[in-house]
Simulated scan of single mutants.
Amino acid sequence: MSLEAQPEFLTEELIRWGARRGKACFNCGNCSAICPLAETNPFYPRQIIRYAQLGATKKILGSPAIWLCYHCGECTTMCPRQADPGEVIMSLRRWAIAQYDWTGLGKVLYRSPILSLIFYLAATVLASLVLYFFHGPMDMERVRLNLFLPTHLIDICGLSLGALVLFSLGINLYRMNFWYRSEYKSVPLDLGALLRTFWEEVVMQNRYRKCEDKSKWLMHVAIVNGFLLLFLTTALAFLLNPEGDPGKVPLFIRVLGTIGGFSLVFGASIAGWRRFTGEEVYNHFTDWIFLKLVLMAGLTGLILELLVALNLPLASYLVYALHLIVVFLLILTAPYSKFAHALYRFLAVYAFHLEKKEQATPGTAET
């Protein structure tokens, strides 16, 4: 099969997505020699990097390979040309997300720090204005969050934003599947394999266990499970406490939410420290934005609990408003942030497992 080559893709286009040193690669194969994933694919990641050198964009978009990497950094450490193959893979992910994205916003947020900052500031101002003009009375005798910001307002805004984000992600996933089917074939639904992949790759982050540096595994486990716990507690609170009175939230939900908040802050702190000390070789500006939002979401949530317990009304209302703004930004940008990375990676690993399972089943291989 012939490839539609674009030799300038790696040397010109991909640099704008973060692969600043990728053009130094001379395809020696050291990355495949050191990569733990090469146990199941001896050409990984050399093959996908070669596709990038050739500019075989259709092959890249239609392959799960760019999502299999968990960026342990061993290939970057061993690269004799300092081409940073790990960052080439991450840049391909950013580029692919923008290609799947039907709005064009992903390209803006990933390629321009200035436009990205303007977008976040505009979204922050919009959320602040909504809270300012639609908030209720502030009881200065006792903290009453559901009076300050009526529950129905939070529910309407949250559900509307969630529906918009899910709609956008749904279209993006359809476009991803289109590219995958163009190079491979349709992915069947195997509920058992889907749940097993979710447990192993999302909840337990098993692939990160292969990294020599276990702090990366701990960091990802803490952040992912922190988000999962907070999502679970938010859903339970919505179902069990529809009036939104914080005083009526069951104790077990509050405990799970607190654990989730601490887990989020712990994981984000490790990630931030690794980047601050230079343990991460290269940091894209979007990584910093996401980490700061995650850390702020966790901290404001925990601080709010403390302020409510101490019955400090004004401080509670201000921190609550800030917390909602940060959560709004995280949800709004979910189709383009690390949330999108996690979703695409989960589905790509699922497809990869099914492909390997089919190859290992007698009578299914092509002759």
Rank of each mutant, 00 (worst) to 15 (best):
N177V: 14
L354A: 09
C211M: 02
D245P: 03
E4N: 09
I66W: 04
E141I: 06
F119P: 10
A193Y: 01
L232V: 09
L330V: 10
M138V: 09
Y184D: 13
L332F: 12
A5T: 13
R50T: 14
S168Q: 15
A334E: 05
C28F: 00
S32M: 06
Y184A: 14
L37C: 04
Y70F: 14
T124D: 07
L230D: 03
A96R: 05
I331P: 08
R274V: 00
Q6M: 10
Y44V: 04
N225E: 07
R21C: 14
S337A: 10
L307D: 09
L318R: 13
G18R: 05
W199A: 14
A268R: 05
I48C: 02
L343D: 03
Y350C: 04
K210W: 05
L166K: 05
M1A: 15
E201H: 12
D190H: 11
L239P: 00
F262Q: 02
H341K: 06
Y120Q: 12
L10K: 00
F346V: 04
V255A: 06
L240K: 06
M204L: 15
I253N: 08
F43D: 14
C211D: 05
T300G: 08
S116N: 03
K23N: 13
A360R: 03
L307R: 11
W17Q: 06
R196S: 15
R274W: 09
C75T: 05
P113F: 11
H71D: 12
F26N: 10
V130E: 07
D101F: 04
F198W: 08
K107F: 01
Q47M: 15
P113Y: 09
R175Q: 12
G278N: 09
G22T: 07
N41C: 11
L347H: 07
I259C: 06
C28L: 10
I325E: 02
M78N: 13
E13A: 10
K292Y: 14
R21Y: 15
P42T: 12
G158M: 00
Y110S: 13
T40W: 08
T333M: 11
L194S: 05
G55S: 05
L332Q: 06
L68F: 02
A351T: 04
G73K: 04
F339P: 03
L264I: 02
L92A: 00
V108S: 01
R196E: 15
P362K: 00
L354G: 07
R275S: 06
S116L: 08
V88S: 11
R20Y: 14
A348Y: 00
E141L: 13
G363D: 03
